[in-house]
Design a protein around this nucleic acid. Structure first.
Lengths: 349, 349
DNA sequence: GGGTACATTTGGATCGTTACAAAAGGCGAG
DNA sequence: CTCGCCTTTTGTAACGATCCAAATGTACCC
């Protein structure tokens, strides 16, 4: 009674149909929960599905329906906790809506980015969430992804031809406002000589944060020494290495707004090497609120960006766009929140 | 001259065939670089591919060939830097071999794990890399993934029926040896009253680390007070909260082997609250070598597990298995390396 | 009994690709 | 000129699902 499931081959909808003497079409209707099928038939089919251990083949269905159930997530640095949290948020939402996440990480290389994008495109994602590598070019990305698949740009702007990508959605952090809040906070603490430390001018987020800093300084009528604007690779190591440069001008700063937490934590180490104790002799702020910020010595004043929430938001934005491609492209600026901790002390007298 | 590409629809191999007056079969041969096609024809076809902006539809090809070009990566905690690095390593290797990574994160929930696995199975991955949630049951996982798709178990053992999963490959860290090395190091520093702090007995990695600790203590003829074996949720917060319990027995320990770095860093904070300075009044070791370990105060002695390399290794293992399913299942134990830093001081006199 | 309305079921074509066997064309030998 | 042989190309039927129009049943009414 009842055939045995096929061996060495996956169970298909035809096997089920044969197994309970109905047509493939009927089984398909059952699978999709159509109200058309008779209750009794449905029960028989469902029993057979269980019995044979059927697994739905979404690729086949997608082919026929010309749909897609995947979203590509391409990140410039998965190993960075900020992006890892972001990815977790994206995957949470996508998983709940029946989409699957196609992951691609580019390690901050533009060539790899293009390769990863083309490879992912062959799997026909319904949409793409892209946090571009530094120096990515709009034109090249466009030619890799084609003009059809919706793309959400996250976190960074891309360089080059604006017209090429003006139909992409965008989700950015409020970098400028964040840096302005941090600077205003240091000013309110009584600082007058405040530096902006770290980051690359090549990255749009760095330029925006600098702009917020400059805005606050200008509004407070404070001047900025050229030696107080120091670039460095945004990681702890280079932040330590470059910290000398803050004190090479004729007047030394008493505080610094740092590009991000990694840089701020590096600068703390650098300060120690100069005999300065951060949070007492020198005030500083970070950006990101990585886990470490709350437990460093001293705890770091920083801007919370809640990357998991951003991930969820990014997923929702791209899903909306997939559902209805018609509305004009949208740019979303996510708020950031200043968290005041011990590192942003008043000036030492 | 030459048709325009179709509008609103993706360019298919048929469009190319029509565009340069050859059959679909010939275009297909060109795409796959077959030596059968005439040099001149190939050039014409390739030109047309470029002209129309063709993108290969791998899903359709996979359907026809009954193959798959994706690997599912299911992680219990993507937000954890350890797994984020692991994922980056996996994706590096898979990307290089033309596979795509299907991501799924379970947030340490066994229900979600089953849901994610079933959902991913519908996309027909060639193989699965699974770092199970705590308390995962072998039988249930098996029924979600079926007996056919190769699965590599990473990092943790699953509970339940051994027979259900004895054909899965495994990749684990050398937890026992790592904890033994850490314990031996503390003993060599002169400690005699050494605790094992943190982790859940529900997790196999915790049991293995405890075993390594016990082994070293026994080998040195040292006894272990029950109050020195403290369980806690393996994160910083609970590690702080539970740290009292270390000092509630009649003899207090002078050192602790911690379940992992997060726990160790939490314990450091807890020690401060007890008026003890870690690295001077109390010695401790971690496990994982997260970025923070090198820069904490004091820097943390720990076991480096190089998660990115583990990711690369996991990808290679599952790819081998996909290529040839016949060899017997294999269990791989990856070595760990003790990094001695300032936190593991000699006992305070 | 025939007609109509309704609920269910069903072939057959189709999505974009590949496998396979067979056809077409060219060329030299007999 | 025919034959075989090689190179190159091509129809056609899959893969596993869905869509659609049409078929089947069955209940009810006049």
């Amino acid at each position: 009674m009842g055939n045995t499931p096929p061996v060495g081959r996956k169970v298909t909808l035809s096997d089920i149909a044969a197994g309970c003497d109905v047509s493939r079409a009927t089984v398909s209707l059952v699978l999709r929960g159509s109200p058309l099928v008779n209750k009794h038939t449905r029960a028989r089919v469902e029993e057979e599905l269980r019995r044979q251990g059927y697994v739905y083949n979404r690729a086949a269905a997608n082919l026929r329906r010309r749909t897609s159930s995947s979203i590509a997530l391409v990140l410039n640095d998965l190993a960075n906790p900020f992006f890892a949290e972001f990815a977790a948020g994206v995957d949470e939402v996508l998983g709940d809506t029946g989409f699957v996440t196609l992951l691609g990480s580019t390690s901050e290389s533009t060539e790899r980015e293009l390769a990863v994008l083309s490879s992912l495109m062959e799997h026909g994602p319904a949409g793409i969430i892209l946090s571009p590598a530094e120096g990515s070019d709009a034109q090249q990305i466009l030619s890799a992804v084609g003009g059809v698949t919706p793309l959400l740009l996250f976190n960074r702007e891309v360089s080059g031809d604006v017209a090429a990508c003006d139909h992409w959605d965008r989700l950015f952090l409020d970098n400028q406002r964040g840096a302005r809040l941090a600077t205003e906070h240091l000013i309110a603490q009584g600082h007058k000589r405040i530096a902006f430390y770290g980051g690359h001018l090549g990255s749009s987020s760095c330029r925006q944060r600098r702009a917020g800093y400059t805005e606050a300084m200008k509004a407070a009528g404070l001047s900025v020494e050229p030696s107080w604007m120091v670039e460095c690779i945004p990681n702890r190591l280079d932040a330590v290495a470059q910290s000398d440069r803050l004190f090479q001008g004729k007047t030394a700063p008493t505080a610094a707004v740092c590009y991000n937490d990694a840089v701020a934590l590096g600068l703390m180490l650098g300060l120690h090497q100069h005999g300065l104790q951060p949070g007492r002799d020198f005030a500083l702020t970070g950006f990101d609120d990585i886990a470490e910020a709350a437990v460093s010595a001293p705890p770091l004043t920083t801007l919370a960006v809640t990357p998991r929430d951003r991930g969820r938001q990014a997923a929702e934005l791209i899903l909306q766009r997939v559902k209805d491609p018609s509305p004009p492209p949208r740019q979303t600026i996510a708020p950031v929140q200043l968290l005041i901790r011990a590192s942003s002390c008043p000036p030492h007298v």
